[in-house]
Amino acid sequence: MDGKKEYFNVQELKSGMIITRDVLKNGALLIKEGTVVNDEIITRLKKAYFLEKIEVKVSQAVIAQSTKEAEMQRVEETFKEISDGLKDLYEKFGRVKENKVSELRLFAEKILKELNSIEIVISTVAFKGSGNDPLYRHGVNVAVLSGLLGKWVGLEQSKVNLLIYSALLHDFGITKLEKKFHTKQDILIQDRYKEVCQHAKIAYKYVDSIDYLDKAVSYGVLMHHEREDGSGYPLGITGEKIHSFAKIIAIADELDVMNSDPNYIDKRGPFEILEIIKEKSLNKLDFEYSKIFLEHITNYFMGEDVLLNTGEKAKILQININEIAKPLLLKDGEFLDLSKHKDVYIKELVLQ
């Protein structure tokens, strides 16, 4: 079998490693040679307080998985760093006269560099949400997703840069409202809705005043809550009157908000959220952009493991874009077509 032998502490063991020498404690056999490490084996060794290093064979698959985990952690740290920088930039807006474009450019360069590893970025952002940071990390997530969609719809590089600027700044106006509005995404705030609606105009005023910044950036900020049927704000405009940057940011914004709100995730699961994006593309979100977004993002989840609401694990084999929440799965060596099992749904992705 391919792989190399190494020695690991119990805490360092990974599922898929193969134990190559009997594990003994006080002369008693704990784990037999040839056993494949899994969560149960690791738990058993921890309960036995086994402290010596264990000889295992590490397959290429395990090495690849460990590499992916390390890369995901690195990307997560990069996005956290940008979130902190974005907070600092927001705080300086309007009171410090300096070249803010240079800071935006630096953030965009870091994001664009990470977009070269699309699978890692999607695993890190697409269904993770912005957690307890509905303003700064949310801004970074929306910028990442907007950048991806901008590339997928064929925007030239210079426009993708500007789109990321706009996405990073799209919720700046929230910081100029009462602090109680800083703790929840603007889409979800029902109390004092009219006041919250002003944040797009407030942000537009600040962003539009930045010297040498393309007007497309401020238009994206102003219009990111406009909707195709005219039901959005602050202008209530429709269709072609909405700037393309705003159309893209709207899709990214909706996705991250739903993935950050436990009420959506607990009740619907990640693929039901993609279904909502598809439904909204019929009259709220741009249809073509939404279609491109959904087609691309679902491709990256082929072969991924998922946890069902039944508590069972399965693997995604095929996703029908017309029924995203009900893909074809492989469970215990057999096909499971969720379109034929209305009470079974994907609770979460098992992204390692």
Rank of each mutant, 00 (worst) to 15 (best):
D2H: 13
G3R: 13
V10F: 00
Q11F: 08
Q11Y: 06
E12T: 03
L13W: 03
K14F: 13
G16C: 06
G27T: 02
T35D: 08
T35I: 06
V36C: 05
V37K: 01
I42N: 08
T43L: 13
K47A: 12
K47S: 12
Y49W: 10
F50N: 00
K53R: 14
K53W: 05
A61S: 14
E69Y: 03
E71R: 15
V75C: 08
K80A: 10
K80P: 02
L86A: 10
E91Q: 13
F93M: 15
F93Q: 07
K97G: 15
K97Y: 09
N99E: 14
V101L: 15
E103T: 12
F107Q: 08
F107R: 08
A108D: 06
K110Y: 07
K110N: 11
L115G: 02
L115I: 10
E119F: 03
S123Q: 14
T124W: 01
V125E: 03
A126C: 13
F127T: 10
N132G: 14
H138I: 06
G139P: 03
V144K: 00
V144C: 00
S146N: 07
G150Q: 10
Q157H: 10
K159C: 04
V160P: 03
N161E: 14
N161Q: 11
L163R: 09
I164D: 06
L168E: 02
F172W: 13
G173M: 08
G173K: 08
G173Y: 09
E178A: 14
E178Q: 12
K179F: 05
K180W: 10
H182A: 02
K184C: 08
I187P: 04
L188S: 05
L188H: 03
R192I: 07
K194S: 06
E195A: 04
C197S: 11
C197E: 15
H199V: 09
H199E: 04
A200Q: 14
A200W: 04
A200D: 06
A200G: 01
A203R: 02
A203N: 06
A203M: 02
Y206T: 10
A216E: 13
S218E: 08
G220D: 05
V221N: 09
M223H: 15
M223F: 08
E226D: 01
E226M: 03
G236I: 01
G236N: 12
G239C: 04
G239K: 12
E240F: 09
K241E: 14
S244K: 13
F245S: 06
A250F: 03
A250M: 00
P262M: 07
P262S: 09
P262H: 10
Y264P: 03
R268H: 11
R268F: 12
G269K: 05
F271H: 04
E272Y: 13
I273A: 08
S281P: 05
L285K: 02
L285M: 00
D286T: 00
D286S: 02
S290P: 02
I292N: 01
H296L: 06
N299M: 11
N309Q: 11
A314H: 05
A314R: 03
K315E: 13
K315V: 15
I316Y: 07
E323G: 10
E323T: 12
L329Y: 01
K331Y: 03
D332F: 06
D332Y: 09
E334Y: 11
L336W: 04
L336S: 05
K342W: 07
D343L: 13
Y345A: 00
Y345S: 03
K347R: 12
K347E: 11
L351C: 00
Q352Y: 11
